[in-house]
Amino acid sequence: MPKNIISIQSQVASGYVGNNIAGFAIQLHGIDLTLLPTVFLSAHTGHPVIFGEAISPALLSDLVKGIGAINIPADADYLISGFCNLPENIDIIANAVLQYPHLKFVYDPVFGDFHCGGLYFEEAIAHYSVNRLLPYARILTPNHWELEFILKKKFQTIDELRAAIEQNDLLTDKTIILTSANLTDTPPDVMEVVLIRQNTFTRFNGPKIALETTGTGDLFTAIVTSQLTLQKSLEDAIRIAMNFIHHTLSYVQSVNEKELSAAALMKHVHLLH
């Protein structure tokens, strides 16, 4: 079995987003991880005050070279990318995917959402990310807003989504896991995920927790990738991720917190196995 998952995304000094939450989730599966940061911030961008900056391309490039020099990618099946707001670092991720073609590339766009009013950073960088990374993705895990951005088209039904994907040359052969689907027939108390693969649309529903917290998308992608590493089917991986996130958010809400925590994650680790 592969010994690690490579994750290239944001890192924070405090909190559970990006590599902080992905790394924790991967380790809870008994899988080692290789973390490369694209930014290093004091906390996630939902806080009113944050400090930090993007990792320099020279440093990220050296880190990729360094893990290659000690043969770490040989022990991995999957490479995850997440938040990245610097075109040069997007190029480095693309080059890493090309350098290690045995790695299945999981592309989590992480550039926008409805609840924050749209994009996290400049629109040109989001388009650059799509154009540079999406062609190499084996699996992508956009939320509803991000998939509309990629498609350059809004959709409210499965039929509208199917038509939009059929018209997009980049997406027709991709496995897409649409998280936080917000369709006209999605009940308000339901969390919906849609798996799109080979023109087949499979809908997964679970109870929705009325709690807006940062990092759940990063957590979902990490759990799904970990479950795939453990040889679970994609359908089972999605169900396990949704169930774990539901119970974790329920706990966070029950203790009157607003953020994910180590206690919330550890309390439900049995659901991953």
Rank of each mutant, 00 (worst) to 15 (best):
133 L>E: 12
137 A>T: 08
126 A>E: 01
160 E>P: 03
133 L>T: 12
130 V>M: 06
137 A>Y: 12
152 K>D: 09
133 L>K: 15
130 V>F: 01
126 A>P: 01
138 R>L: 12
146 E>G: 10
154 K>I: 02
133 L>W: 09
153 K>W: 10
158 I>F: 00
136 Y>F: 15
159 D>P: 01
134 L>W: 09
147 L>D: 01
148 E>D: 06
134 L>E: 08
138 R>T: 14
126 A>I: 04
148 E>I: 04
137 A>P: 12
129 S>W: 10
158 I>W: 00
126 A>L: 05
129 S>L: 07
124 A>K: 09
152 K>T: 04
155 F>C: 04
156 Q>H: 07
140 L>P: 04
134 L>G: 07
157 T>V: 07
143 N>M: 06
154 K>D: 06
162 R>L: 08
133 L>R: 14
142 P>N: 02
131 N>V: 15
151 L>G: 06
128 Y>M: 08
159 D>W: 08
144 H>L: 08
142 P>Y: 05
143 N>A: 03
135 P>M: 13
148 E>K: 05
155 F>I: 04
129 S>Q: 15
128 Y>Q: 11
161 L>F: 10
131 N>W: 08
145 W>V: 09
156 Q>L: 01
150 I>M: 13
124 A>S: 15
127 H>N: 13
129 S>R: 09
146 E>C: 13
145 W>A: 09
151 L>T: 06
160 E>W: 06
128 Y>F: 12
161 L>H: 02
124 A>I: 13
147 L>Y: 03
153 K>R: 15
162 R>V: 13
146 E>Q: 03
126 A>H: 05
129 S>H: 11
130 V>D: 04
125 I>N: 01
151 L>I: 14
139 I>Y: 09
161 L>W: 07
145 W>N: 03
135 P>D: 09
160 E>S: 00
156 Q>V: 00
124 A>T: 14
144 H>A: 07
156 Q>T: 01
158 I>Y: 01
156 Q>W: 04
149 F>S: 02
155 F>N: 00
126 A>R: 11
139 I>C: 02
146 E>A: 00
140 L>V: 06
149 F>E: 02
154 K>Y: 02
157 T>L: 06
138 R>C: 06
162 R>I: 09
156 Q>E: 10
124 A>M: 13
151 L>V: 12
152 K>I: 01
130 V>A: 07
139 I>E: 03
160 E>K: 06
142 P>W: 10
140 L>Q: 06
152 K>H: 11
141 T>P: 03
159 D>M: 00
153 K>P: 08
151 L>E: 00
127 H>K: 15
147 L>G: 04
153 K>G: 11
132 R>Y: 03
134 L>T: 09
126 A>S: 12
159 D>K: 04
133 L>V: 15
158 I>V: 12
154 K>Q: 10
132 R>V: 13
142 P>D: 00
146 E>R: 13
141 T>M: 12
138 R>P: 03
148 E>P: 04
150 I>R: 12
132 R>H: 12
124 A>G: 10
149 F>D: 03
160 E>T: 02
157 T>E: 05
144 H>E: 02
139 I>K: 06
142 P>F: 09
134 L>P: 06
131 N>H: 14
153 K>M: 08
137 A>W: 13
126 A>Q: 07
124 A>W: 00
129 S>C: 15
140 L>W: 07
157 T>Q: 02
153 K>S: 14
151 L>F: 00
149 F>Q: 01
